[in-house]
Simulated assay, not measured.
Amino acid sequence: MTGAVVDAARGWIGTPYLHQASAKGAGADCLGLIRGVWREVVGREPAHVPPYTPDWAEPQGDEALWAAGVANLRAVPSGADWAPGQVLLFRMRDRSVAKHLGILSRVGATAAFVHAYSGHGVVESSLSHPWRRRVVARFLFPIS
């Protein structure tokens, strides 16, 4: 089933970046991409997402995305193998909250992930060392 997750994520490539959006081909941010893939591979979203600002969790130091991942996805143990279809949670700056998401699309020497990135839209990027070192948690969609 992880192939379905990667295929769904890649189907969003080219969608413009649009804060708070989750509409394939029209606009998505990183959370919107995860929500859209959820709808395609799991079904109805498990919770309503309230409006949020670009700095939504930083002032209060709230790890809201991490908590939502734990509540709605299946956590991947830290020592487990990296596998396509895993949802990656990134901390973009030291001592800041984790607030970027992507979906691992390829592992190994050419590891890559699909994500919605401001100024770029939904793209598939190399999971280079600078990206990989920012991953703080991995999750799986709750599918068989």
Rank of each mutant, 00 (worst) to 15 (best):
V42D: 02
R44Y: 05
V41M: 13
T53I: 01
M92F: 04
D55I: 00
T53G: 10
E58D: 04
R106Q: 15
D94M: 05
P59Q: 07
V42P: 03
Q86R: 05
A98K: 05
V107G: 00
S78A: 15
P54W: 06
V76P: 07
W38P: 01
R95Q: 13
S78Q: 14
A83Y: 09
G79V: 04
L65E: 01
G43C: 01
V107R: 07
A75E: 13
V70Q: 15
R35N: 10
A67M: 14
V87R: 06
A57D: 13
L73E: 07
A68S: 10
A67N: 13
D94E: 12
L89I: 01
R35L: 12
R35Y: 02
E63V: 03
L88T: 00
W56Y: 15
A64D: 05
A47G: 00
V37W: 07
P84N: 14
R35W: 05
H100R: 12
V107P: 05
G85H: 12
W56M: 10
G43L: 08
F90Q: 05
L104H: 06
G43R: 02
L33Y: 07
E40S: 13
A80I: 00
P84Y: 14
G43N: 04
L88M: 10
L88E: 00
A83M: 14
P77N: 10
Q60P: 06
A98N: 03
T53E: 14
E45F: 03
R93S: 02
A80V: 00
R95G: 03
G43H: 03
A98E: 06
R35S: 09
T53M: 13
R95V: 02
A64I: 05
Y52R: 10
W66Y: 13
W38M: 04
S96F: 01
I34R: 04
W82V: 02
G32D: 11
G61W: 00
R44Q: 08
A68D: 06
P84H: 15
R106I: 02
Y52A: 09
E45M: 12
P84L: 12
L89W: 02
M92T: 13
F90K: 10
D81K: 13
A71S: 15
N72Y: 09
E40K: 11
G36K: 12
W82T: 03
H100E: 04
I34Y: 12
L104W: 11
A71R: 15
